[in-house]
């Protein structure tokens, strides 16, 4: 169960209790994808092969406390991003529970924006969706544009942006608010050196304002530099949880 022993004197901000997340994925066709085959399956009462269940997080438990910054490491597909989304409350748990202090915010490069719209419209829409008033959105608009560094591209549709530019804009929009529990999903991995430096700075500011920061990153450097604790996820369950340096060392020697 959750590390209740660790709570002496510390204030928990996120409690994850035996969390399981199962995705239901449609359209993963296997076998004969024709109508008679589908009919036969219904007669035999088999589950549709087009509906696949992906068990992305399998029984994860931990507790985080105020003032901690926690790095999540692990290979691609080990469930890191899914875990963050579950903590953010964006993906409902299949089993188990996640308890949080206030509303956590996910800063993700995947934050969906509308690709047919201009960068300008996307900034306003993103701000409104996060709950800002139109006046607040207008007020912060210039900051966001400046931070994203998109300049004149801001009035072109987002589908014309390079992937780096899209990610810069997404990060700039999400970083505009300060948060109690902040979840950062590989936001640092993108963009050029200059933007990376600026976003690292912004994340440090946000971390100081926030109670707890979670950071998913493949850059072990960043994890040891910015995190106090690290959790190593492997195939959806925790392989190791502890001091950032120790976990990162164990992880890198295991993958080498």
């Amino acid at each position: 169960m959750a590390d209740i022993q660790h709570t002496n004197g510390q204030v928990p901000t996120v409690i994850v209790d035996d969390l399981h997340i199962v995705y239901r994925v449609y359209g993963a066709t296997v076998g004969k994808g024709n109508a008679p085959a589908a009919f036969k399956r219904i007669l035999k009462r088999q589950k549709s092969p087009a509906l696949r269940e992906v068990h992305a997080v399998r029984g994860v438990s931990f507790t985080s406390h105020r003032g901690e910054s926690i790095g999540l490491i692990g290979r691609n597909g080990s469930g890191k991003s899914t875990l963050l989304r579950a903590i953010a409350g964006l993906l409902p748990p299949t089993r188990g529970a996640v308890f949080t202090d206030g509303q956590p915010t996910l800063l993700g490069v995947n934050a969906a924006l509308m690709s047919d719209l201009t960068g300008e419209r996307n900034i306003i829409l993103g701000c409104l969706a996060m709950g800002l008033t139109p006046a607040q959105a207008k007020e912060r608009y210039d900051d966001i544009v400046e931070f994203s560094g998109l300049g004149e591209f801001i009035d072109l549709p987002m589908r014309t942006y390079s992937s780096g530019m899209q990610q810069r804009l997404r990060f700039a929009i999400a970083a505009v608010k300060s948060h109690d529990v902040l979840l950062i999903d590989e936001a640092l991995a993108t963009g050029d050196a200059d933007f990376r430096k600026r976003s690292e700075e912004r994340i440090r500011e946000l971390r100081d304002e926030a109670g707890t920061v979670f950071l998913v990153s493949h850059s072990l450097d960043v994890v040891t530099k910015t995190c106090t604790r690290a959790i190593w996820l492997d195939q959806g369950s925790i392989k190791m949880d502890g001091d950032a340096e120790t976990v990162v060392n164990a992880y890198s020697s295991a993958t080498r």
């Binding site: 204030v11 928990p12 409690i15 903590i87 996640v98 202090d101």
Partner: peptide, 12 residues
Amino acid sequence: LAAHHGLAPSSA
């Protein structure tokens, strides 16, 4: 423990 510290389920 969550209730004790005023934490709420994140996807309630």
